[in-house]
Design a protein around this nucleic acid. Structure first.
Length: 702
DNA sequence: GCGATCAGCT
DNA sequence: CACAGCTGATCGC
């Protein structure tokens, strides 16, 4: 839970995610996402009164957050005072003291945080330097390097302070299985159950919070079954979520809730009250998403655990793991970092001990000789001209440097993150800032093109095996390019292509921080967005448009598999959950190859834990392998007890968080990178050539 | 009656 | 395991 008090040292007149006490005096409010622990005081009478007196005070958030917030009647009084800011669109905001008339300008940029729909990080740039408030986030390793607007001149911006989500900033939580692994595990479990019969249903025991939507949409997409929920009106303007949900109880996947749901479940009753369909009793299992983590040396990442006869726990995390946090922070390398959360059992000091070494100050404490000629942690290879002296960090905030962009050189993915219907370009018009307007219009035009082409390929996608990218169930809902309706692109986006950034991340030199010593091999692109903030006009940027947010962490499975560095072990179901029919249009047929438990010895299991597909592992109760009550039909009608936990699904994808990829034994079919190959790759990296990673014919790609 | 806070629960 | 959030008890306005 966030213990951030709302204010940042550099910009104390703005309040973020806290709206009580001192924050009542703020000149502007920011909400990173719609979770209650970040909304304290947001509907308190004291703040309501403040709003009535101070007509220039606004709440800034992402378009999706605005939508979610205003759907709740309790917050509807904010309607006239919420201003949605497009993702990744630097926007200038005036902080006015209404009493004295004193004014300060800041430029804020919203960056997708991957925590829940609408969740963002706030990057502020102004006279007291550049600071980043992360809100809650889950970003896979290397993702910061793909955020265009964290960079300037091809380098990470000079960030004074980071206010960081440290929920799992504890070595205990070293590794949390990737979103894709978890998703795949749940998908296969659900698939294995609901394909048994139309009366086999799954209850997803989710907490009342935004953040599970990508689970629902992916399950629905892959299995062709809508998810039953209690309410969906908050998604009314987000078709890509809405289409996968239903309030019709007659479906096989439920995520409905009830205060006595657990009790109901004991009696084979779903939270929505049904126990049968068409006079046939339902066979139900429950899956409870919860965080699972693994230590540094743990190679086994079991994403599904059986906790009872019909109960399962599935790995699911809204927050970055310890190693993901460290990766993020070390990439940003701010002067200071402050924890927003103190994990239970830790103290502020303990957390600071982790954060400090990743900050600039600790690294530049004493002058050190550094060998010249090392590559700087550049992120993207720009083809444009060099624009600034690389030897020194920018003394000025980026916004003060007014550059006139001459061409749009941003990468397509940047645009794909910003869904904007045609015809809304005028909403971006900001009187008094024609330079920015021009840029916006240019980018908008390009964006629209981009969208249309996306929608074209969408058609294709549906006719192609959706495993094209090798990601299988991770395939995420596509974008709709309906110019007339508000757009919603799923906030977690799949990225097929590994970028060179990713590779750079794995290079030792990528950890190098601080001032550059290397000549730039490649010039940087002219800055567009970062130097041309959109001004927040008074003509109310009201927009019903729902912007997308995308989190791109899908590269790891394909990357690593394609390089053969890691065992390509994906989640595999046990025979207990086996169903013989290959009836489903499975994207995972390769991975889904059940094997009889009895045929596998314990030692085999140990091995298999490190090597892939035809594997399961049962960490905790190997001696119980014969006692699976699920092997036969019919099943579970009553008498749910809780046998010792059994791990049913396993994935040994040590994945993105692996600190030492080469330690991992290879699978028979996997190839270790040969020194020459590595040399070749590194050579390409060093010279800035893009590396196209050839996708291995995936196991799943059958 | 409402809100803030806390314990308990999941 | 923790998370996010609900419920219910208590207290103060």
């Amino acid at each position: 839970m966030s213990s951030f008090q709302g204010q940042m040292a550099e910009y104390p007149t703005i309040s973020i995610d806290r709206f009580d006490r001192e924050n009542l005096k703020a000149r502007a409010y920011f909400l990173s996402h719609c979770h209650k622990d970040h909304m304290k005081g947001l509907r308190a009478p004291s703040l309501k009164r403040r709003l009535e007196c101070s007509l220039k005070v606004f709440l800034y958030c992402s378009p999706v957050t605005k939508e979610l917030l205003l759907t709740s009647p309790k917050y509807r009084f904010w309607e006239k005072r919420v201003r949605a800011i497009e993702i990744e669109t630097p926007t200038q905001i005036a902080l006015v003291d209404e009493a004295s008339g004193e004014k300060e300008e800041v430029v804020v940029t919203l960056l997708p945080a991957g925590h829940c729909p609408g969740s963002v990080m706030f990057l502020f740039q102004g006279r007291n330097g550049t600071v980043l408030y992360t809100g809650d986030f889950r970003l896979a390793k290397g993702e910061a390097s793909r955020m265009e607007l964290l960079h300037s001149g091809g380098r990470v911006k000079d960030i004074q302070s980071v206010y960081l989500d440290t929920t799992f900033c504890d070595p205990r939580f070293y590794q949390i299985p990737s979103r894709e692994e978890c998703l795949r595990g749940i998908l296969e479990l659900v698939r294995s159950w609901i394909t048994r019969s139309p009366h086999h249903v799954v209850w997803l025991n989710c907490k009342a919070a935004y953040g599970y939507e990508y689970l629902f949409t992916n399950l629905s997409e892959e299995l062709g079954v809508q998810v039953h929920v209690d309410k969906m009106d908050m998604f009314r303007n987000m078709p890509n979520i809405l289409h996968h949900l239903t309030t019709d109880r007659n479906t096989q996947i439920h995520a409905c809730r009830h205060p006595k749901a657990e009790e109901y479940f004991q009696w084979n009753k779903l939270p929505c009250g049904i126990t049968s369909q068409n006079k046939t009793v339902l066979h139900t299992i429950s899956i409870k998403p919860s965080t699972m983590w693994f230590g540094e040396r743990t190679r086994k990442t079991n994403v599904i655990v059986r906790t009872g006869e019909s109960s399962y726990r599935a790995c699911f995390s809204f927050h970055s793991s310890y190693s993901e946090i460290k990766d993020f922070l070390s990439y940003i390398c701010p002067a200071n970092a402050y924890p927003n959360v103190i994990p239970v059992g830790l103290t502020v000091d303990k957390v600071m001990d982790v954060l400090k070494p990743l900050c600039r100050s600790s690294q530049s404490a004493e002058p050190k000789y550094k060998p010249l000629g090392k590559l700087k942690r550049t992120r993207t290879i720009h083809l444009d001209s060099e624009e600034e002296d690389d030897l020194f960090d920018d003394p000025l905030p980026t916004l003060l440097r007014h550059k006139v962009p001459y061409q749009l050189t941003l990468h397509p993915e940047v645009f794909s993150m910003k869904a904007l219907p045609q015809g809304q370009s005028e909403l971006r018009q900001s009187p008094g800032c024609y330079t920015a307007d021009n840029v916006q219009n240019v980018s908008l035009a390009n964006f629209v093109d981009c969208e249309e082409s996306n929608s074209d390929s969408e058609e294709e996608l549906e006719t192609l095996p959706s495993l094209q990218g090798g990601l299988g169930p991770v395939t995420l809902p596509q974008q709709h390019a309906d110019a007339d309706t508000p757009q919603w692109e799923v906030f977690f986006k799949r990225k097929d292509d590994i970028t060179d950034d990713e590779c750079l991340e794995n290079l030792p030199s990528s950890i190098e921080t601080g001032g550059s010593q290397s000549p730039k091999l490649f010039s940087d692109s002219p800055k567009l967005f970062s130097d041309s903030p959109k001004l927040f006009s008074d003509s109310d940027g009201e927009s019903t448009h729902i912007s997308s947010q995308n989190s791109s962490q899908s590269t790891h499975i394909t990357d690593q598999g394609s390089q053969g560095w890691d065992s390509q072990c994906d989640t595999v179901l046990l025979s207990s959950q086996e169903r013989s029919g290959g009836d489903s249009p499975s994207l995972n047929k390769g991975a889904y190859r059940p094997k009889s438990r009895e045929n596998i010895s314990a030692s085999q299991m140990e091995q298999n834990a490190l090597c892939p597909q035809d594997t399961y592992c049962d960490l905790k109760s190997r001696d119980e392998v014969n006692g699976d009550p699920h092997t036969g039909e019919p099943d579970i009608v009553s008498g749910r007890k809780s046998p010792p936990e059994k791990t049913l699904l396993t994935s040994t994808h040590a994945d993105s968080q692996s600190s030492s990829d080469f330690e991992i034994p290879s699978t028979p079919e996997a190839e270790l990178p040969k020194p020459e190959h590595l040399q070749y790759l590194y050579g390409k990296l060093a010279t800035g050539q893009s590396i196209v990673v050839e996708k291995r014919k995936s196991l799943l790609d059958i």
